[in-house]
Nucleic acid binder design. Structure first.
Length: 273
DNA sequence: AAGCGGTCCTGTGTGC
DNA sequence: TGCACACAGGACCGCT
């Protein structure tokens, strides 16, 4: 669920709320996530203060004293919320991290596709899931040249290329579709058929779109909430995602949906070639 | 060997 | 109303 703008929103929230706070107690209620929650998870977090909160791709890194990092990925349905301790707990609250503020972070994930682990910062840098992440869309390396090179040597569909975390870190199905609409390119177009001009369009449009989405605090389709359990507003500004059958906001053609593998791809047959 | 499809899991929406 | 089924924002695994 949460893609770059949602994860960035959560990180921004938590950074302001958690920096300088100390972890008092940790409860693990469900260890069966994508990676099982480690035996020593609670012990390793206990007593440490938060230095900072960062995003890497779709991963949330809570950096702690003693060069440790608490790393979470929210999968499709995960939430990481900082709320009052008195607030009733909910089904699928899997991890509770209590702070010296009287509030607690809750890791909540009905589908359990996400993960939450603690490791040293040096181990984190060597961890394949982080180490192998591609270019961040806000990095200067995310250029038309990079996209052109990556695309031209691939037979895959461009939407799949954009969602490949080893090539570009942070994009998922919603934003990949929205980017391609703004760039005027069909999601089904094969990488090797992307020209220099199209690569420039994608490079130009991507950071702009993501900044807008962050400004609106992300897309709340159903599950997603920010770091204090509030909905985002970008769902009201999506132009193609989940709008199949509706009118294109630019040319009024009917938005189409096709299946690419196991997921939907949305596009305007007139605006996107 | 890159690229695709199936799979993990629960909740929600749709259609009969 | 109730039931069965399809589908969902991610990412890994294994097959071809």
């Amino acid at each position: 669920m949460p893609e770059l703008p949602e994860v960035e929103t959560i990180c921004g929230n938590l950074r302001g709320l958690l920096r300088g706070r100390r972890i008092i107690e940790v409860e693990v209620l469900e260890r069966r996530l994508r990676n099982p929650v480690g035996e020593n998870f609670a012990l390793e977090l206990q007593g440490r203060a938060v230095l900072d909160v960062e995003r890497k791709g779709k991963y949330i890194l809570v950096l702690l004293e003693g060069k440790m990092a608490w790393v979470s990925h929210l999968g499709m349905s995960g939430k990481l919320i900082y709320v009052d301790r008195e607030r009733p707990r909910e089904r699928h609250d899997h991890i509770i991290v209590r702070f010296d503020s009287g509030r607690e972070v809750r890791y909540h994930d009905p589908r359990r596709f996400g993960l939450s682990v603690v490791m040293s910062v040096s181990a984190l840098d060597r961890w394949p899931q982080i180490r192998d992440l591609g270019v961040d869309p806000f990095d200067h390396q995310f250029s038309s040249g990079y996209l052109y090179t990556v695309a031209r040597t691939s037979r895959r569909r461009i939407v799949d290329i954009l969602m490949d975390q080893k090539l570009v870190a942070g994009l998922g199905n919603i934003y990949a579709n929205e980017i391609l609409f703004r760039a005027g390119i069909r999601p089904t177009r094969r990488g090797w058929r992307i020209g220099r001009k199209s690569a420039m369009k994608i490079a130009h449009v991507t950071p702009k779109l993501l900044r807008e989405a962050i400004h609106w605090r992300g897309t709340s389709f159903s599950d997603y909430r920010d770091g204090e359990d509030r909905e985002g507003e970008f769902q009201n500004r999506l132009q193609v995602y989940n709008r199949d059958g509706k009118d294109c906001l630019i040319c009024s053609s009917r938005i189409k949906k096709v299946r690419i593998g196991n997921r939907g791809a949305f596009y305007c047959p007139r605006c996107q070639k």
